[in-house]
């Protein structure tokens, strides 16, 4: 059998803060297939973002082996696009220039007209028409998230890492974005790791949902989401199967959330 695209073997992570060692993630095993959409849910501080950081090569695991496409991740992993929790838009570039930034780099070099076309497409995709000349400081949190999303999508990376991409969006816009992301992922044959607090969002989008337990984070349950594709994100919430999955996963999740609030 061919190797999986992303493989985590006994991956753990601990940080040293002054004299104490804080375990952020207990040994975790997980394999992600090519073109699979995996959603991570769990309480804050359970190490979901840490996994994304490790897959991106920004953070080495303390123990265990992490490989991407069969090779260990040692340096930055440039085959992934990463939409971090805190956005990294450059404050001195306007919306259009932030979105087009990757295409100015030598490795994705695109001519000016081609770049403008793509920026226009992306601006429309994330619904920011009319805001091209605005600076990030002038945008709301939700708009900034959409700029960051467009910047990640514009250069078409093979794997998408998304850390609460739609957290700051209102409910309607969220659904529209779910629809778009689903289309982009299936058309572009993307592999996705998706961190969210929103269980419904995870079930609606993912092929598999991974529920994490709280500190130190570890995988509590991995659930296949057997809802047929393509999914109608606007209606899927009302299907009986969705409700069943939601109830089942919520039972797993709520203890963890409670544990998190107790401390």
């Amino acid at each position: 059998m061919a190797h999986q695209l992303i493989e985590l073997k006994d991956i753990s992570k601990s940080f040293q803060r002054e004299q104490t060692i804080i375990a952020a993630l207990s040994p975790v095993n997980l394999a992600v297939r090519r073109e699979e959409f995996v959603a991570f849910v769990g309480p804050s501080g359970c190490g979901k973002s840490t996994i994304l950081n490790m897959v991106a090569g920004l953070l080495p695991p303390t123990t265990g082996q992490l490989s991407y496409d069969g090779a260990p991740v040692r340096d930055l992993n440039r085959r992934v696009g990463y939409m971090t929790q805190k956005d990294t838009l450059l404050p001195w570039r306007n919306v259009a220039d932030n979105i087009g930034a990757p295409l100015e780099l030598a490795c994705h070099k695109t001519g000016k007209t081609g770049r403008m076309d793509k920026i226009r497409q992306m601006v429309e995709l994330v619904g920011l028409k009319g805001f091209e000349k605005h600076f990030p400081g002038e945008l709301s949190g939700g708009m900034r998230r959409r700029v960051a999303l467009a910047r990640m999508l514009i250069y078409d990376p093979e794997t998408l890492l998304m850390d609460e991409p739609f957290g700051a969006l209102d409910a309607q816009l969220k659904l529209v974005m779910h629809d778009e992301i689903q289309r982009i992922v299936s058309l572009g044959h993307k592999t996705v790791l998706f961190v969210t607090h929103d269980l419904s969002e995870a079930i609606a989008l993912a092929d598999r949902v991974v529920v994490f337990s709280s500190r130190p984070g570890q995988i509590k349950i991995v659930r296949d989401i057997d809802l047929p594709r393509p999914r109608d994100v606007f209606r899927i919430r009302f299907s009986p199967r969705f409700t069943e999955l939601h109830e089942e996963l919520w039972d797993e999740l709520k203890d963890e959330v409670k544990k998190g609030t107790d401390t």
Partner: peptide, 11 residues
Amino acid sequence: GWADAYRLMGA
């Protein structure tokens, strides 16, 4: 985060 983001984009 800015430099990391650029590096991941391939800069």
